[in-house]
Each structure stands twice: as structure tokens, then as C-alpha cells.
Design a protein around this nucleic acid. Structure first.
Length: 1097
RNA sequence: ACGGGAGUAGCUCAGCUGGUUAGAGCGCACGCCUGAUAAGCGUGAGGUCGGCGGUUCAAGUCCGCCCUUCCGUACCA
């Protein structure tokens, strides 16, 4: 393939580079890539638009050490489309690449290499140094693959100067953001419940915890424990609810809580009920009355076999119980652990510190008693609740799973259950003790049960920003729109504080330095740190372990860095700022000295006009970008976002290495071309929907669009190079035939539609408009006008050539953002090097309203309709198109379109191969009519009377109504004594051709054929059969289309006769310079009625 | 389990605010066309619109419940 590279010269024998009918897209794309590279086209698209308005695009950084996969093709196709489009629209687009380089995936891959899985490898400084060194290099192991992939797809992004999250400049900028957040009071240290593998006390990531595999069915205790209510301090509301109880009942009254983890009972700090559930006081055979959910009464009654059912004494909503204090099951623990000075200690405002009833939505009566025991140190929901009520944590079990309190102290948590239950029984606090079979997670490697444990960590107070984030979200255009208030909006609404710290090694170190007494100093730049440390740190690697060496004295206290590193999502969410190395003062208003230019760059590129990633980023990058920008700039970080669905395999299963159904992108590009793969990505489904991928669909994308366009292009070049049309001398558009003006009107509509779609970030609609146009171009314009390109006898149809040339050239521009290689190749050749250096440097076509012609396009649509209908009739009645028929009768739905059909009579005759067309006015006996109500019109008018109208229509004289409708007159129908006057638009007239009549009607159009064959018609049909046979033989013989031949026809019977009658016609059609009858020489082929012999002359 | 998508022909997908006989492409069968030709076009078969119930003159479309599947969050007394 050399079409694009070869520069036509004045001495070139052809005007256009030759275009093979079946190109190798792999070679074509390789050629285009090479030219882009050599001529620096991508760079030129940036230079050329310097000083133009900026269209701001953000590259969401892939994790560098992963491998490029099919979903990256999807995202990168879209990420490429809109910037290309905007550049053609005249915008400047900075397309800075970026890499996400920190975090667990990198650590895990290095751990695997070192065989360190699950071990605490940060133990020594030397180990950590080596580990992080390996992380830093391992990040780039697949970089070459990424670069190849990115280039091959045609994704234009500047990979020469990407932002890299581990670089000092980036890290420092992230520090600066954290300092600003801290200045706003948004950074805090708090507890977070994490899954631990006890004994080794290692926090497990979600990946390590596995999905389902690590859950096992186990038998655990299921115990119902009494928490005696303290009557003296009963809040007013509860007092009122319980007022019905007598003195004796008040004595023994207790909440009954349910738990499957008795080992958490010593750490109990709260009980929880659901405000909206009904609770009751109930009395059983033994012990005092109990408080449980009404819906749990039956279940609890069933626990004690043989005992009388519980008797309900009072009932009230759960919210009445808020604040009720109780005796904890292990009262001495709180004081022993030093959490309370004394049991039932109170805050300054008189409220108890702990051990009271709270309200929580998550409590249900579906299991247990409807009263939940809360040990916030060992459960995420519990912790959240404790936070809400400002209650401190109690750690009865340490992070190695060892019980620290009670008579069971020293035991492993799961082993302590039995003793604790026995203790409670002995003290009369056990309402019931049983077992429950349920799922519980285990750590695969150690085999230990997982311990959920509250560890201290660093937070950003995003929960308090939830409202504001929802407001700034309003300004974002989400594609698909449902995400805005659905997935993303819900996420923002239920937003909790952002846990930004990780007890890991390879990450942005938190810039938090603390003194022994807990004073926090957040450092916002290397310069600041240098000053504090009293030495120049500008050359220091900001990662661990080096950064941990930096300490400083302040006010007589020594400050050391906290050990944690930063959540990688904060890294990537910082890219609008950190990609430019933004450093500012705490307010964000002034750049730090020396960083003014960085701030200018940032301001020019904030917020983004467009970002695009897959849907899982709603909780990832979409969120981190949004949260940080809302907190720091009180506005969204992006204005438009396309949220892509995932790609699954043909059967709907997720693609994964273990299933072996992963599709490699590069071989796909080689087989079908990157353009076809891109086209598939844009067109396969709504971008937000999931795509079931199959290679067949890429092949189909190629056939239906890329190949069709290529065929037309190839057709044009083939004949243009024979005819050498002087395109610049073509007649003005208004002087051209209707057919040409029609095509240009459709082209203009296509420009309009594609532009509108892309402006709305709707790639698919734009693609559809293009596909439709290319289809019409190929299947109507070119097919109808083929002979205008044959330039017989030196006559060149400049109008046809100029029209087709312009259509192809404009399509090359419209398709450029979608299929950049094909577009480039076509454009370069069609302009013969006289146009712009690249199609991607051209200006996007403007709509020329004067060329739009709705009347013309509607009329042509009518002609196409009639031809399609006619062909359908021929098909249905086995009347092959090659056989001429005497006449066709046609009718259009409206008088205007009827006029259009008259004007296009010749076209219709040719397409339908008939000798005459007659035009039918009004209703005809050729078809049978039936009537249907036009429901959208009359439904609203008649409503419940509709069934009667239906009946009336069914009973009416269909032909008579049809006549009225045709004439545009109202008519009356009757049924059951009622009569209805209907307007013509109130009824739909259907027509059906009777058996044996070759006719069809659809949407008001009708086509019927006179099927009687005369001897002449049969002869002509035979002649055309012969022509076709000979044409096929020409091709089989390997002749070129313009070759002239010597032809001998050895025929018998009717065929011989027909050939003699149509001799000149046949000779002309097959370019036979000599035509003889009888035996001959050269290539022989079977044709209708005999044999043809062909020789090239 | 909860939240959000999705479920329409063998496959991939359209079907707007409820309204005409539910459509397209691929695949299949049959046929056509051919100076684009290892292309192109037409016709046909193929559908309980995931299921059940409801609202309505009218439901693929609205409501409720259920099932399947994907994504996310969680694993909770």
C-alpha cells in the first residue's frame, strides 16, 4: 500500500495514487503511522492551534505496570475521538500523558518476584530501600508495550512528557494539596476498621481477602444476652413508653441483644435499635421482662422449648429507646482498660460516655432480637455509629487476636467464646445460647479467621462536604445521564470520610510530621521541609525510607513523619494540579516563589472540558477528582464525562486470565485494522452499556463501514485515473443534475448531524449518520450513476466526478476522529498532496445551509422507496430484474411525492427495468384495502369509545374510506347505532395485493407490474443474460475493465436469435470490437444458450 | 445483603414523552444484481419484548413483586 506516501508529481502518469480494491489495513495504517511520525503530525496539531481557545482534556493515568487490554482500547478510542474533533474545530488541546505508578498492584507484583507474599517486609530499612527500588523499576516493565499499543491504536497523547505520580515534583505537589486541605481543617486522624489476619497482625487488602473463596461455612455461637436497663437515668421519652410497667417489672427489665461474636461483648460500648421498628416489653417464664423488636418475639419464644410464649406488656417505636442506659455485660472492663475512670462516667453535659441505646438504620428484626450489640472496635458499621454518638472505643482484643480482659484473658479471640458464654450464664445474663451456621471469612494463608479491627488512620473529612459535592456535581454533564443522580449521586449522598492512609511502602509518603505529644505539622513543599530540617533536601528521594530519616525540632519537640503512605486514588485525583507541579500557599491563591509558571499552566487547564473512563471510576478517579476540586476550588474538576461500560466476552463473562478469554488488542489491530476496532468500540452499543465482545463484530464493523467507504473511494480513483477529470472545471453546484444536488444535500445533512452529535459527546449517533451516508453513497449514488463515470468517447462527466470527489473528501474529514488512518489515507490521496498536510490539521466542515434541500431529499427518498418496493415485488413474484417488463404502475403517498416520481421516471424505469411507467392517482382495484384506527390521533379524542370506533371501521366500506382519505375528505362510519365522523388522518388505510397480482403497497406507496411477456421482451432479457455471462467471462479471463475484445458467440435457438437482434447492444456493453457468430478462439465460457470465446485486442 | 445498570429474533443491538402490524445488522434459507465484484441488493423463516400481578380504551414502554446477569458497596449484630 503506497497510496498515502506517494506524492503525486506533475509527471505522474495518474492523478491519484492507485487504490487496491482490497487493501491491507495493517499496511495502510503502518504507512500512515510512519508518516505521522516522520512529519510530526501530532505535534503539529498542537503547534498549529497555539493561542486558540483550549479544550481541556485530562488523561486518566493507567497503572503503568499492568498490560494494555481490550478495555483500554475502548477508553482510549473515546479519549482520542473528541480531542481530534476539537482540534479540527480549531481548539488547542493539550494531551498530556500520565502514569499511575504507586500502590498495591505494584507492591504485589514485586512481592511475588521476591517471594515475600504476606510477609512484613518493611522490617528493616535496607529491605524497604530495596523493595521500593524494585517497585520503581517494575513500574516500567510494560511501558514499551503501552507505547506500542497506544501508537498503534492511533491514540494521540503526549508520552514524551507525561506526569508520573512517583516523581518528586508530583509528590511535592500532592503534599501541597494535603497541606491546603489540612489548613481547611479537613484532615484528621481517626479509626478505621480493617480486615486483619490475626497472629501476624497484617492488614489484608481486598485482593488478598479474595472475593468469595475466603468465606467458609462455620458454626458460631448465637447468643442472646441481657443488658439490664438502668431505670434511674431513663430519658423522658423512654419513661413514657415504659410507664405501664409495675415496680417489680422495672426491677428486672433488660434489653436482649443478639450476637454471633461473644468475644466482642467485653468491648461493648453501645446497643442499637432501629428508630422505625416497633419494640415491645415482653415477659417470659424466667427472669425479668425483656425489650426486643416486636417482630422478634415469636422467634425468641421459640428458643425455649416447652416454655409459654412471651407475653407482650407494652409496645413503642424504637426511637423511644434512644439514650436508655444499661449495665454492660462486663462492667469492669472499661475502667480496667482505662477508657472510663469509673463505670457510668458522664460527659460534662451530663450524658453518659457509653453504654446506652442508639438509633441505627442498619438494625433489623430479621435476625436475632432486633437490638444490636455494638463493639465499635470490631465492626465498620459499629464504628460509624460510635463516631456519630461520640463514643470512645474499647479494645478487649488486641490486633493479634488475643483477649486482654476478663477471666478469659490471654486466649485467642475465637477460643474465648465458650468461657465468656459460661461466665454470662453463671451471672444470669444469658437469655439463650445456641449456635448458628453461617459464612465467615478466613485468611487463606494462615487459615485463621479474619479479625475486623479498628486501626488508626488518616482521613479527609469528605462526609462533611457531601452536600457541596452534590451541588458541584450538578454542573457536570454525565454520559450516560443516569450516572449523575444514580451511581455517582448516590455515592456522594452516602459519602463517608475518605481514608487516605495505607500502612504500605510504595506510595506518596504522607507529609505529616508529629511530635511525641501528638502535635501535627503538615509540610507543603520540599523547601518548607528543608527549612524545618535545617538542610537542603531538594535532591532527596521523597519516598520511604529516605523521607522517614527527616526529622526536625520545633518548640523543643522532635517531629517525626507518620509511617503511612497515601491512597493512590488521591494521587490520581491530584493530577489537575500535580501534573503541572502546582505549589501554592495555604489559600491556593498565590504560587510559591518560583512556581508562578506552574500555576499559569494549571489555570489554563482547569477544569477539564472532557474526561472519559470506565464506569468503575465513579468510586475511583471520577470521585477523587471531584472531591479534591470541590474541597479546594468549590467547583467540579470536569464539565463532561463519558462513563464507559465494561467489555465482557461473547457469553457475557468477565474477561480474565484465569478463564483464558482475554482478547489481545494488537493482533486484532493487525487483522482488521485499528480503524475497524475503533469503529466497533464507538458503534457496538451505547457507551455506558456493557459490550459483549466478539471478533465477528469487529469484522462486521469493517464490512459494513470501513470496506463500504473504501469501495466507493476505490471506485472513484479507478475511473478518475482513466478519465482524468479536471475537477476544478466542474459546473457550479446549482448547475448540476438533481442527483448530484441530492447527494450534496445529503452530505450537508450529514455534516450537520455528525457535528451536532459530537458536540453532544454522542459518538454513536455521529457514527450512525456517517454510516447511513456512506451506505447511500455506495448503494444509491454510485450504483445509479456508474455509467456517468465511464467517460465514453472522451466525454467526461465533470459534475459526477466533482460531486463524488467532494463527498469522499468531506467524509474523510468527518470520519477522521473516528477512523483516523483511513481518513488520512483518503484525504492525502484525494487532495493529491495539494491540501493540508494532514486531514487532522484541516478545519472541520461547516454546514452550508444553501445546499440543504429538504424537498429534494424527501423526493429522492420517495424514489428510493418505490424502487425498493418494486424490487421487493419482483423478488416476491420471481420476476428477475434482468428480464425487462412492459410497464410498472406506481403511486406515491402524496401529490408532491407523486410529482417527484414523475420527474424521476427514467431512473425508475432503469432501476425496475420496465419499458414504461404509468402513474396512478387515487384508489385502485389492483389492491385490497383494510382500515385501522390511527391511535395516536384518535385515541385521545375517543378514549373509552375507542372499541366502538374500531368496530365501526371494521364494518365500513374500506375502498370508499380509502377514496375519501385519498381525497383528503372527512367521512362517517357507523356501528351499534353510533356514528363517528373521522378526519382523513384518523384512519390508516392498508393495502394488500391480491393473490397473483404482482403489486405491493407500503406507507402510501404502490408499485404494480404488468407481467405479460412479449417475444421482444423475452429476447431482450436473453440478450441481457448473455451480456452478463460475457462480462463474467471477461473477468474470469483476467481482462481489465477498459480492455476491448474480439468476441465469438456459439449459440443456438432463441439465444442465437436474441443475440442477433441485440448484436450492437451486446457488443457495446462488453466492449467487443468484433462480434461474430460461430466457433472462435481465446478464452471460452459457458453462457446462456451456448459458448462465448473472448480474445483481448 | 444493599445500591445502580441490563434482560427485546440464534447473535449484537434500536425502540422518544404509553398509541398503528415491535425494528436493524449479522447468521440461516431462497433469490437478484454486477464495467466497485473474495463486494452489493432483496425476500423469507425466526419474537409468550425475563416471569407474575396491577393501572389504562391502549403497556416492550408506567407501577409492584419475583427471577437471571453485570457493576459497585459490604459481609454486618
Amino acid at each position: 500500500m503506497t497510496t498515502t506516501e506517494s506524492k503525486p508529481t506533475s509527471s505522474s502518469p495518474t492523478l491519484f495514487g492507485p487504490v487496491p480494491s482490497q487493501p491491507s489495513f495493517r499496511e495502510l495504517e503502518a504507512g500512515v503511522l510512519e508518516r505521522w511520525q516522520q512529519e510530526g503530525i501530532f505535534e503539529r496539531t498542537q503547534e498549529r492551534r497555539e493561542g486558540q481557545p483550549e479544550f481541556v482534556f485530562y488523561e486518566g493515568p493507567p497503572t503503568a505496570n499492568g498490560r494494555p487490554a481490550l478495555h483500554h482500547v475502548l477508553a482510549r478510542s473515546f479519549k482520542d475521538l473528541f480531542p481530534r474533533y476539537k482540534v479540527m474545530q480549531g481548539y488547542h488541546v493539550t494531551r498530556k500523558g500520565g502514569w499511575d505508578t504507586h500502590g498495591l498492584p505494584v507492591e504485589i507484583s514485586v512481592e511475588k518476584k521476591l517471594g515475600l507474599q504476606g510477609r512484613n517486609h518493611g522490617a528493616s530499612r535496607a529491605e524497604l530501600e530495596e523493595f521500593n527500588r524494585l517497585c520503581r523499576t517494575s513500574v516500567w516493565e510494560t511501558i514499551q508495550e503501552w507505547n506500542t499499543f497506544t501508537e498503534r491504536l492511533g491514540y494521540w497523547v503526549d508520552l514524551s512528557d507525561p506526569y508520573i505520580t512517583y516523581q518528586n515534583r508530583y509528590v511535592e505537589s500532592v503534599w501541597n494539596l494535603l497541606k491546603r486541605l489540612h489548613a481547611q481543617g479537613l484532615v484528621a486522624q481517626d479509626y478505621k476498621v480493617v480486615p486483619l489476619s490475626p497472629r501476624i497482625s497484617t492488614t489484608l487488602s481486598k485482593a488478598e481477602l479474595g472475593e468469595v473463596d475466603s468465606y467458609r461455612m462455620v458454626d458460631d455461637p448465637s447468643v442472646y444476652v441481657r443488658f439490664p436497663v438502668i431505670w434511674d437515668t431513663l430519658p423522658e421519652r423512654a419513661h413514657a413508653a415504659l410507664s405501664a410497667l409495675g415496680g417489680e417489672d422495672r426491677q428486672g427489665l433488660a434489653l436482649v441483644v443478639w450476637t454471633t461474636t461473644p468475644w466482642t461483648l467485653p468491648s461493648n460500648t453501645l446497643a442499637a435499635v432501629n428508630a422505625d421498628l416497633t419494640y415491645v416489653v415482653a415477659r417470659g417464664a424466667e427472669g425479668g421482662p425483656i425489650i426486643v423488636a416486636a417482630d422478634a418475639v415469636e422467634r425468641l419464644s421459640g428458643l425455649h422449648k416447652g416454655a409459654a410464649p412471651l407475653e407482650v406488656l407494652a409496645s413503642f417505636p424504637g426511637r423511644d429507646l434512644e439514650g436508655v442506659e444499661y449495665e454492660p455485660p462486663f462492667p469492669e472492663v472499661a475502667v480496667e482498660l482505662g477508657v472510663l475512670k469509673e463505670l457510668h462516667e458522664r460527659n460534662a453535659d451530663g450524658r453518659p460516655v457509653m453504654h446506652f441505646v442508639t438509633l441505627a438504620d442498619f438494625v433489623s428484626a430479621a435476625d436475632g432480637s432486633g437490638v444490636a450489640h455494638e463493639a465499635p472496635a470490631y465492626g465498620a458499621e459499629d464504628l460509624e455509629l460510635a463516631r456519630q454518638y461520640g463514643v470512645p472505643l474499647m479494645f478487649g482484643v488486641d490486633d493479634r487476636g488475643i483477649l486482654q480482659v476478663t477471666g478469659e484473658r490471654g486466649k485467642f479471640f475465637k477460643d474465648a467464646d465458650r468461657g465468656l458464654v459460661a461466665d454470662l450464664k453463671a451471672r444470669g445474663l444469658m437469655f439463650h445460647a445456641g449456635t448458628l451456621r453461617h459464612r465467615y471469612p478466613f485468611h487463606d494463608r494462615t487459615g485463621d479467621p479474619i479479625l475486623y479491627f479498628a486501626k488508626k488512620g488518616w482521613y479527609i473529612r469528605t462526609a462533611s462536604m457531601s452536600g457541596r459535592m452534590l451541588e458541584t456535581n450538578e454542573a457536570i454533564n454525565w454520559v450516560p445521564p443516569g450516572i449523575k443522580h444514580g451511581r455517582f449521586g448516590n455515592w456522594l449522598e452516602g459519602n463517608v470520610d475518605w481514608a487516605i492512609s495505607r500502612e504500605r511502602y510504595w506510595g506518596t509518603p504522607l507529609p505529616f510530621w508529629m511530635s511525641e505529644d501528638g502535635d501535627l505539622r503538615v509540610v507543603g513543599s520540599v523547601a518548607e521541609l528543608s527549612e524545618l530540617a535545617g538542610r537542603d533536601l531538594s535532591e532527596l528521594d521523597l519516598h520511604r525510607p529516605y523521607i522517614d530519616d527527616v526529622t526536625f525540632e520545633l518548640g523543643g519537640k522532635t517531629y517525626r513523619r507518620v509511617p503511612e503512605v497515601l491512597d493512590v486514588w488521591f494521587d490520581s485525583g491530584s493530577m489537575p494540579y500535580a501534573q503541572w507541579g502546582l505549589l501554592t500557599d495555604e489559600t491556593g491563591e498565590r504560587a510559591l516563589p518560583g512556581f508562578e509558571a506552574n500555576k499559569t499552566q494549571f489555570e489554563r487547564h482547569f477544569p477539564a472540558d472532557f474526561i472519559c473512563e470506565a464506569i468503575d471510576q465513579t468510586r475511583g478517579w471520577f470521585y477523587s477528582l471531584h472531591a479534591i476540586s470541590t474541597m479546594l476550588y468549590d467547583q467540579p474538576a470536569y464539565k463532561n464525562v463519558i462513563c464507559l461500560g465494561h467489555i465482557v466476552d461473547e457469553t457475557g463473562a468477565k474477561m480474565s486470565k484465569s478463564k483464558g478469554n482475554v482478547v489481545e488488542p494488537l493482533p486484532l489491530f493487525d487483522r482488521y485494522g485499528a480503524d475497524s476496532v475503533r469503529w466497533y468500540m464507538f458503534m457496538a452499543s451505547d457507551p455506558g452499556d456493557q459490550k459483549r465482545f466478539s471478533e465477528r463484530l469487529v469484522a462486521e464493523a469493517q464490512r459494513s463501514y470501513v470496506n463500504t467507504l473504501w469501495n466507493v473511494y476505490s471506485f472513484f480513483v479507478l475511473y478518475a485515473n482513466l478519465d482524468r477529470p479536471g475537477l476544478e472545471d466542474a459546473p457550479a453546484v446549482s448547475e448540476r443534475p438533481e442527483m448530484d444536488r441530492w447527494l450534496l444535500a445529503r452530505l450537508e445533512e450529514t455534516v450537520r448531524d455528525v457535528t451536532a452529535s459530537l458536540d453532544a459527546y454522542d459518538a454513536r449517533s455521529g457514527g450512525r449518520a456517517l454510516e447511513r451516508f456512506v451506505g447511500e453513497l455506495s448503494n444509491w449514488y454510485v450504483r445509479r450513476n456508474r455509467n456517468r463515470f465511464w467517460g465514453e468517447g472522451g466525454q467526461v462527466d465533470l459534475s459526477a466526478y466533482a460531486t463524488l470527489h467532494e463527498a469522499l473528501l468531506t467524509v474523510s474529514q468527518l470520519t477522521a476522529p473516528f477512523t483516523p488512518f483511513l481518513a488520512e489515507s483518503m484525504y492525502g490521496n484525494l487532495t493529491r498532496g495539494q491540501g493540508a498536510q494532514s486531514v487532522h490539521l484541516t478545519r472541520w466542515p461547516q454546514v452550508r445551509p444553501e445546499r440543504l434541500d429538504e424537498r429534494l431529499t424527501a423526493e429522492m427518498a420517495a424514489v428510493i422507496k418505490v424502487v425498493d418496493l418494486g424490487r421487493a415485488v419482483r423478488g416476491a413474484h420471481n420476476l428477475k430484474t434482468r428480464q425487462p417488463l412492459a410497464s410498472a404502475t406506481v403511486r406515491a403517498g402524496t401529490p408532491e411525492l407523486q410529482g417527484a416520481l414523475r420527474r424521476s421516471q427514467t431512473q425508475i424505469m432503469e432501476e425496475l427495468n420496465v419499458k414504461a411507467v404509468t402513474f396512478l392517482e387515487g384508489v385502485t382495484d389492483l389492491v385490497e384495502y383494510s382500515l385501522r384506527p390511527n391511535l395516536p390521533v384518535i385515541g385521545k379524542v375517543y378514549g373509552k369509545a375507542l372499541p366502538s370506533v374500531r368496530a365501526a371501521l371494521a364494518a365500513a366500506d374500506a375502498a370508499a374510506v380509502a377514496r375519501a382519505v385519498q381525497a383528503g375528505e372527512s367521512f362517517t362510519v357507523e356501528a351499534g347505532g353510533q356514528s363517528f365522523e373521522l378526519t382523513p388522518d384518523g384512519v390508516l388505510v392498508d393495502a394488500k395485493a391480491p393473490e397473483g397480482v404482482a403489486a405491493a403497497e407500503d406507507a402510501g406507496f404502490l408499485v404494480a407490474f404488468d407481467t405479460a411477456l412479449t417475444r421482444e421482451l423475452v429476447q431482450e432479457g436473453l440478450a441481457r443474460d448473455l451480456v452478463r455471462g460475457i462480462q463474467e467471462a471477461r473477468k474470469a479471463a483476467g481482462f481489465e475493465v477498459q480492455d476491448r475484445i474480439r468476441l465469438s458467440l456459439e449459440l443456438s435457438g432463441d439465444a442465437r436469435e436474441a443475440a442477433e437482434v441485440w448484436r450492437d447492444f451486446i457488443a457495446g456493453e462488453v466492449l467487443a470490437g468484433e462480434l461474430t457468430f460461430g466457433p472462435g478462439e481465446g478464452y471460452a465460457a459457458e453462457v446462456e444458450g451456448g459458448t462465448a470465446h473472448l480474445t483481448r485486442i
